[in-house]
Every structure is written in structure tokens, then in C-alpha cells.
Design a protein around this nucleic acid. Structure first.
Lengths: 104, 104
DNA sequence: CTTTCATTTCAAGTTACGTTGAAATAATAT
DNA sequence: ATATTATTTCAACGTAACTTGAAATGAAAG
């Protein structure tokens, strides 16, 4: 991961609707949620939710799988972890002040 | 910290020039760097660096202090840590997969 | 095969962000 | 006071992101 990729991933997180999407998917657990359920969970129109989901999906934070008529989305913790690790290790050189801050 | 504030902070990190600013300030240590030194470090014009610094400053990731003719900037690890903690604890409910990912 | 349901794509308008160079401010030295 | 250095602010432009509603796609049921 380089600065440019990390910047793009931070961009995918720079929207409160999308943060709520992640939160809803985390709460939902391994089964994930269908796109329509997500739209309802964050109080957005289907097309708006779809737009945010495609942004998150392109960033790799979520993945979709078709299940009958629905597209079921799941969160990818590895991808979020990779970004946090970049910020902590590459960007901040694993500085102790940040490690302790982050509860490590 | 709520979703809206966190989203704004992620927005401040969603630019590779600004990530390089943070990196340069981390490397510089407690003494920080003058705005002009930062501009040179990231290969940007003074006005462009100033623009990015004001974005980072507004987000609270850096702080400035005048020293003679120069404005000396320092990184705020607490602020970065607060954002990481939000992502880990609030947004992802302290999920074990993410904790381990992040080296805790 | 037609209808229905779930979701995405598209086009249009609005808003926000990034870049540039010139002008303005702030502090210091002569 | 004036000049010099460091930095920011401003205006203007181009580009990217967001929102909305309507149309299009994909899958399944009757």
C-alpha cells in the first residue's frame, strides 16, 4: 500500500453514510446484509445506497455475492486492517504515542 | 466523535500530498517543520502546501506555532489515534479480526 | 414468456475539492 | 520607514464527488 492507494481508501471512508454502511454490516455479522436492507438501515434511497456500496466495494471494504434476487454484502476486516496498519506503521512509523492511543 | 466528524477527518487524509505531510512531520519529530520545509519535502508550491496544511490543521492532525518568521508545524498523534479508535471501536465494534490485523 | 422484485446504471444539476499565480499579511532586519 | 523573507489568502478555473429520479438489467415466480 502506497500513499496514493491509502488516500483513495480514506476517501472511501470520508462520508458518513458509508461509515454507517460499514457499521450496519459489522453489526450484521458474517451473514451480511442485502443492498435493500442496507439502504433501509442508513435511511437512503436504493440508488444512493447502491452508489455508496459501489464506492466501498471498489475500495475493497465490502464484497457482494448474489443470493437469489438480492445482492448480499459483507464487510472485509482485512482491508480495513490493512489501511489502519498503513497509517500506523508506514505513515506514522509505528510511533509509541499512536500505538498506545489505539490500544495496542 | 460521531460518523460525521470521522468522515470529515478521513476526508482530510484522502490526499497523498497530505499523507506525505504527516509522514514528513512524523520523521521530523517533536521539533516539527516550517511550512516552507514541508512544501519542499513534498515537492509542492508554497501556496499548495499551505492549502493542505490548513486542511490538516482544521482537522486537528497538525498544529502550528510561530517561530520568528516561520510557522512551525507539528503532528498530533492523539488526534490520529482518536480517529483510529473510532474506526476500530465505534465503527467496527472492536471486532477481533480487525484488532489482530492492526497488531493489538 | 410475462410479471415482479431487487439492484444498478445513467443523465442532469449542484456542490465540494484541487491547482495556479498574484496579491496580502506578518515578522524581522537594515 | 523600507526592504526582505515566510506564509497565507484570494479569485478563477477545471475536475471530481454527491444527489435525484427515471430507465435498464438480472433473477426468479406464476
Amino acid at each position: 500500500m502506497n500513499e496514493q492507494e491509502a488516500a483513495a481508501l480514506f476517501g472511501a471512508l470520508s462520508n458518513d453514510d458509508r461509515l454507517r454502511v460499514i457499521r450496519a454490516l459489522v453489526r450484521a455479522g458474517p451473514d451480511g446484509l442485502a443492498a435493500g436492507e442496507i439502504a433501509e438501515a442508513i435511511g437512503a434511497s436504493p440508488s444512493r445506497a447502491s452508489f455508496h456500496l459501489s464506492t466501498l466495494s471498489e475500495a475493497g471494504f465490502v464484497h457482494a455475492e448474489r443470493q437469489a434476487r438480492s445482492l448480499r454484502y459483507r464487510v472485509d476486516f482485512d482491508r480495513i486492517g490493512a489501511l489502519m496498519r498503513f497509517l500506523l506503521e508506514e505513515c506514522c512509523a509505528g510511533h509509541p504515542d499512536l500505538r498506545s492511543c489505539c490500544g495496542s
